[in-house]
Design a protein around this nucleic acid. Structure first.
Lengths: 233, 233
DNA sequence: GAGTGGTCTAGACCACGGG
DNA sequence: CCGTGGTCTAGACCACTCG
């Protein structure tokens, strides 16, 4: 439709990507510098910079002062997963969401939990176990441990309206953390709660969040077989 | 060390994030516009824009023309996973890497594969099965199907030096695709190849890549129990 | 219609780090 | 040292969309 005679940064982004994909600019090679590209595309240097910065953030280019901009040799494939809010995940599937609070207690950290949270074993912690229901079917099982100091108030919060996760997001912000996916065989308790055979292959999501180096909460979400966590590439 | 009297975009980024985390700017509320913030921080509007854009890319802010910039109410947690190159993954663990090509053949697409690749069942495809070894231990099992036209040459390529994955990265670029994680019980074949009991909980990575809407390759990587895919939060 | 963010410019200075 | 990318500025125009 349009006959453009100028280039925006997205056009440059696309053109550079095309040259890389086509092999015109080989993996590992240095591409022209910003000034030269600005001349070629007849635009300001900042516009080229904007395009190249985006490609660098995508992991396609490696940019260094003085050394120039290189095409990354082995592009590490990165996938950005949107970790769903369980309530929304269930409702998006068209099922009514309900959470069943199985346990909320003060308990000393077990060996395993202490290791995950980088605390001495026996440290008093808040322990919450929740079953997330999609209609009358179990969607996933949540086993959460939280620091009673950093998450002060969680022990008494009304968790019928908002989940422990939502409470923590609002009241105990984190500065960093990790997430991990893995698989595990269903134990007797998990099997009964989720309504699946013992030993069934579970999908496990472990998440630890910290505030200034101190662990706020460690949560394990366990999904029955068939659950898929997907992301665009 | 330094006593700064000006603000860079990263300083503004940090300060805005602090105001959000502290509740000074509540979730869901609209924050001041770029012009006002530029006045407050005594800098150019573009500098504020740079900081706010970064926060929007992080999923913390929602920016709309005319409507202004709002603090996202339920920040969708995003995790960026670096999908490892298997050779590097193994060598990083200190084990010698070796790939065993179990099968390389032309075969018609099965129902399941046809569905995954959005092709009619029976379409002739390239089928490669590889066992990735870490020392004398199986690290993961790869089951790959590829379009023989888009991946022309893969059928004859010497896969002892570079893997099918590396060959495809170099010779059959993709424009888009998806990746998915899930769990599954080990079948008899997988169990024997990986040296684990039948029915053991596998960690499964499915990846499909396309070029201009046409599927280039569909690959399934199967890891034995204990494997973890981690990412910073 | 008007206010907001999105983009671009032409120029400037700075910070890093390869040679 | 000095070329490169990183950042900032002051201004301008545009695109979107809410009221």
């Amino acid at each position: 439709m349009e006959n453009r005679d100028t280039f925006g940064w997205q056009d440059i982004h696309a053109e550079v990507l095309r040259r890389i994909r086509s092999g015109e600019w080989a993996a590992g090679s240095t591409i022209p510098n910003e000034v030269d590209l600005a001349y070629e595309f007849d635009c300001a240097r900042a516009t080229v910079g904007r395009a190249l910065r985006a490609l660098a953030e995508d992991g396609v280019l490696d940019r260094r002062r003085r050394a120039g901009t290189r095409v990354v040799a082995e592009p590490v494939r990165r996938a950005v997963f949107a970790i769903p809010v369980i309530r929304q995940e269930v409702e998006a599937a068209g099922a009514p969401y309900r959470a069943v609070l199985l346990e909320r207690s003060q308990a000393p950290a077990t060996e395993a939990v202490a290791a995950r949270m980088a605390l001495p074993p026996g440290t008093p912690l808040l322990h919450l176990r929740t079953l997330h229901m999609a209609g009358d079917r179990a969607h996933c099982y949540e086993d959460r441990w939280a620091d009673p100091v950093l998450a002060k108030g969680l022990g008494d919060a009304p968790l019928d309206r908002i989940s422990a996760n939502e409470w923590l997001v609002r009241n105990a912000p984190y500065t960093d953390g990790e997430i991990a996916f893995s698989s595990a065989a269903a134990g007797p308790g998990e099997a009964e709660l989720l309504g699946i055979p013992e030993g069934a292959p579970l999908f496990v999501l472990d998440r630890v969040t910290r505030q200034e180096g101190r662990t706020v909460t460690a949560v394990r979400l366990v999904y029955p077989p068939g659950y898929r966590m997907t992301a665009p590439l």
